[in-house]
Amino acid sequence: MFTTEVERPAPGGTNGTRRRRAVGLCVLTAALVIAAAVSLAVGARALSPAEVWHGLFADPEPDQKLTEIRLIVQTVRVPRTVLAIVAGLALGVGGALIQGYTRNPIADTGLLGVNAGASFAVVSVIALFGFTNPFQYVWFAFVGAGIAGVVVFGLASIGRGAGNPLTLALAGQGVTVFLAAMTTAVALSDQKSLNALRFWNAGSVAGVGFDVIWPVTGFVAVGLVLALVTLPALNLLNLGDDVARGLGVNIAVSRSVGIVAITLLAGAATAACGPIAFLGLMVAHVARYLTGPDYRWLVPYAGLLGSGVLLVCDIVGRLVVRPGELESGVVVALLGAPFFALLVWRGKFKSA
């Protein structure tokens, strides 16, 4: 009987890889902190570090100039910075997860129909109830995103192709096209809905207060916990369903929990900011390039990259048309479209 000796990798190599990945996480975290500090200082009115510090921590004073600085920092720049970090984290993690669960390198969080569901919910409640305040319709957007995700997952779970990643992608595309048509029909029949949709569809982290941000952060936190729980199983699922099943993974449960996590993450971010295209797609590919295919590292990298990219795009949007602003979703799209074309050019989609 012949035996084959398998050469084991040197322990030092594994430790070196982990150390490099850990250092990378620290670098990304530090870069995110720096970007957040810059975000507090940059805008239609530039602030010095001393003024930012005063705006964050000083007590109310009778001086009008200092009062204005405090209002700018605390009511405008801190909320949009926090929302950019939270939404970018959610979309980055969601993008990495959806690519893993569908085994599709061009998958994005919009694949589950959450963007289309949120848009349809927004125009519907504005047309029916006349809501104009984002705080009023953001919750309907979240519910619409969740319902769309449930419908897509339900359609993908029935019939001969149940559980197949391709079936999930096709169901998502079908629901997205239907909801996009319904959104257009409602918006064209109601001027208020059309005006709100034009602003909301651009994707922006501005103008949202902490009364919306904190509840959205709660939903994102739940989605992140579910995502972390499923990462070991996700690594096995990417070896193929048969291999994963043979190693003891309950494929139906793992995939269901993963889809719920993606829906919570993408739905919460989309409800608060509007649809932001390409972000999850971009950062997932960059994270995979930096970490390799191990989702235990890839997902944290994608989350930090998502926060950083969205925050930097928001800063750029404040600078390029100053004293006006360009919505962060537009800047992300301007960055993401060439990135998408680059992936096509490099042949990344041959396995799609």
Rank of each mutant, 00 (worst) to 15 (best):
P215V: 00
T183S: 04
V186Q: 00
I213E: 04
L194N: 02
L179R: 05
G223M: 14
N195A: 08
V220Q: 06
G203I: 10
N195E: 13
V225D: 00
S189Q: 12
F178N: 07
A221T: 08
V212D: 09
A196R: 01
N195F: 12
V220F: 07
W214N: 12
G209A: 09
A187D: 02
A185G: 15
R198P: 05
G203W: 04
L228G: 13
A181D: 03
A196F: 00
T176G: 06
A171L: 11
T176I: 09
G223L: 09
A227F: 06
G209H: 02
N195M: 13
A181P: 08
V225C: 01
Q191I: 12
L224V: 12
V212M: 10
F219P: 02
V208K: 10
P215K: 03
V220R: 08
Q173N: 13
A221W: 01
W214P: 08
K192Q: 15
L188K: 03
S189C: 07
V216M: 15
L188A: 00
L194S: 03
D190M: 11
V216L: 15
N195I: 05
L197T: 00
S189N: 13
T183I: 08
G172P: 11
I213T: 01
D190Q: 03
A221M: 12
L179S: 00
A187G: 02
V205I: 08
Q173P: 06
M182F: 04
A227M: 04
F210K: 00
L224Q: 01
T184N: 15
A185S: 10
N201L: 15
G174D: 10
A185H: 07
V186S: 00
F219I: 08
N201H: 13
P215H: 01
A206D: 14
V177M: 13
S189P: 00
G209T: 01
V186E: 00
A171E: 07
R198H: 13
G223R: 01
F199I: 12
V177Y: 15
S204H: 05
V205Y: 03
L194A: 06
A206Q: 12
L197D: 02
V212T: 14
D211G: 15
T184M: 12
Q173S: 15
V222K: 07
L179A: 03
Q173G: 15
G223N: 10
F210I: 02
F178W: 05
T176F: 06
K192M: 05
L188S: 04
G223H: 09
F199N: 14
G207K: 14
A180W: 03
V175S: 11
K192P: 10
T183Q: 01
V216T: 09
A180I: 15
T176K: 06
A196K: 00
V175C: 02
V186G: 00
V177I: 11
G209Y: 02
D211S: 08
V205R: 09
T217L: 04
P215G: 03
V208H: 05
V216P: 01
G218R: 09
V212Y: 08
T217F: 10
V225P: 04
T217K: 07
L179W: 09
A187K: 05
V216W: 06
G203H: 07
R198F: 13
A221L: 11
V225L: 10
D190N: 14
L224M: 08
A187F: 07
L194Y: 14
W200V: 07
A171K: 12
T217V: 09
F210E: 03
A187S: 09
